[in-house]
Design a binder for these strands. Structure first.
Length: 531
RNA sequence: GCAGCUGUAGCUCAGUUGGUUAGAGCGCCUGACUGUGGAUUAGGAGGUCGGUGGUUCGAAUCCACCCAGCUGUACCA
């Protein structure tokens, strides 16, 4: 093949996608195992659905178009039907349940994880392919199902090593939001656009603070880059009522649980700098929050229904001792605008982290979900109550890495059998085979460099030890085993090269027949598991 | 999508008002230290300066467009 350097193919990955190395794979596997453990403890069972669905099953056709939404990776099948890569695991579950409805036990509780795809702008910890881990209860309308999901979310965070107080499950209810919108006179169909704008504004409380939300509810807001976002154009009284709603959380004490209340984001990093202790351990009282909300919006039937559900969730969770430090009613939680019909939940990490350059990193929510009683009805006509939540595995992984909860050191490598005499490669191969038969990960050096390079190779692989047999050992019927982990420790105390070479630290000879036994001893000494 | 900033070796960066064969540290490879990862030491390989076009006698440096990354914002199932 002609190697024309000007025509070389550039090795590159499309934006928003990522390769993952051995350390990250191992960390992900460990994380998935822990999540699975918790979910199964709650009685959820595993299923898996494919990554591709009919676009219509995902419900993502653009209004007034026969093309799917641009945020979704889509293509046409041979028969011209539109297919899409799934962008979450909830819509596929709805399809699965509808398709197998009569076979499944009800309530039906299942979990699943897998890659999902979104064709949108990537950011730190935000990719176009990422992993989610979902659990859902289908066919249970009771608030107990919602409460249990929230409790499980809390357990999962703790199982992953995030201490209580460093995360919080925020709960709200779409019915309450709808009631508030009705109360300010935005109930009608013709005000749909305005309603959405108001909901989006409410959702931004934790980022922009009350001032920013107020601006977005009114004329609009200009951000630091000078970009202007058009607001909802509400009247003053409407705005104040919404702000009242958004800040209705019961303040047992000031600034606990929600530094958010009075702060724009400039203040936020300041507060976290002086008060970096977990913010969730608050006196904020769910009962007080509910009382505040009932006082203001209790006359609205929709809101009241939602408040009843929130109260049940709080009471059920509280009865199991999941208090406000874990499950907190937060009126500003909105979640997606598409399909939630009742309670919504959002898991947030409450600690701050800095990136490599010392800038604070914002993770946003690492898990979320809610009740979607209408989703399965699209397939079946009758409403099927369902509630569930979804963990953003990839984003949570990024967060845990920042928190130092992820083991980022590479796995221990295999034992390497050095090749000193090229004609005797068969003998070396045999040694490697013997080790493998004894459940020891082992490999033959397959390159063609000298001994020094082979040692460096073993070092780089993270090998616990190497097996050496040159002509000297061969003549005596022995092999040398060099313990690289011990050797590295010994190296620190050795300054001269002469000494380094002559002492041959952590190296010993054994008869050929004892090879396996001796290697196993080295592995055991370092606590390295067999395979 | 919109706005701002950034893009020079594998990594972190330097490169003076546009001026010869584009540099450093670390890393990598090879040799020495009489078959051994560290240390020391000698040498070496890596860059059409993100891409394409333009201005100029001359472009890493100036201009335009494109691509990618970061930050904010919008959207987020």
């Amino acid at each position: 093949m002609a190697s024309d350097s000007t025509n070389k193919l550039k090795a590159r990955l499309p934006r928003g996608l990522k390769d993952r190395g051995p350390a990250e794979l191992a960390a992900t596997r460990a994380m998935l195992d822990k999540i699975r453990e918790v979910f199964e403890r709650y009685g959820f069972e595993a299923i898996e659905t494919p990554a591709i669905e009919y676009t219509e099953a995902l419900g993502k056709f653009l209004p007034d178009h026969d093309q799917p939404n641009e945020g979704v990776f889509s293509f046409q099948d041979d028969d011209k039907q539109w297919l899409s890569l799934r962008y979450d695991l909830t819509a596929p579950l709805a399809r699965y349940v509808a398709e197998n409805f009569d076979k499944l036990p009800k309530p039906y509780r299942s979990y699943r994880y897998g890659w999902v795809f979104r064709n949108e702008k990537p950011g730190p910890g935000r990719f176009r392919q990422f992993m989610q881990f979902d659990a859902d209860t289908v066919g249970a309308a009771s608030a107990a199902a919602d409460a249990e999901i929230c409790m499980m979310a809390a357990d999962t965070m703790e199982r992953l090593g995030i201490p209580r107080g460093s995360y919080v499950i925020k709960v709200n209810n779409r019915k309450v939001l709808d009631g508030v919108l009705e109360a300010i006179g935005l109930g009608g169909d013709e005000q749909l656009r305005q309603r959405l704008t108001v909901l989006r504004a409410i959702d931004k409380l934790d980022r922009l603070g009350p001032g920013g939300v107020r601006a977005l509810l009114g004329a609009g807001r200009k951000d630091e880059s000078g970009d202007f976002t058009k607001g909802a154009g509400l009247a003053k009284e409407q705005i104040e009522l919404v702000i009242k709603y958004v800040l209705a959380r019961g303040h047992g004490t000031r600034n606990s649980g929600g530094m958010i209340e009075m702060l724009g984001k400039r203040a936020l990093s300041f507060i976290s700098a002086i008060d970096n202790k977990p913010a969730g351990g608050s006196q904020t009282d769910n009962r007080q929050t509910l009382a505040n909300l009932r006082a203001e919006f209790g006359l609205n039937a929709t809101a009241n229904e939602g408040l009843d559900e929130l109260q049940q969730i709080a009471e059920l969770a509280g009865a199991a001792d999941y208090k406000e430090d874990r499950i907190l009613i937060e009126p500003s939680v909105v979640r997606g605008l598409e399909y939630y019909t009742g309670p919504v939940y959002e898991t947030e990490l409450t600690f701050e982290v800095k990136d490599d350059e010392g800038r604070p990193v914002r993770f946003g929510s690492v898990a979320g979900g809610g009740r979607y009683d209408g989703l399965i009805a699209r397939f079946r006509g009758e409403a099927v109550p369902a509630t569930g939540f979804s963990i953003g595995v990839s984003r949570l992984m990024t967060a845990l890495q920042h928190l130092g909860k992820v083991d980022s050191k590479p796995e221990t490598g295999p034992v390497v059998v050095l090749v000193l005499d090229r004609e005797r490669i068969g003998d070396y191969q045999k040694m490697a085979a013997e080790l493998r038969m004894a459940d020891v990960r082992a490999e033959l050096y397959l390159g063609d460099s000298g001994m020094k390079a082979q040692m460096r190779y073993a070092d780089k692989r993270g090998s616990p030890c190497v097996v050496i047999q040159g002509s000297d050992e061969r003549a005596k019927g022995e092999v040398q085993i060099k313990d690289l982990i011990e050797g590295a420790k010994a190296a620190e105390a050795i300054a001269s090269n002469k000494e380094w070479r002559e002492t041959r630290p952590a190296q010993f000879s054994v008869p050929e027949a004892k090879l396996v036994e001796a290697v196993r001893e080295v592995l055991d000494r370092h606590g390295i598991a067999r395979h």
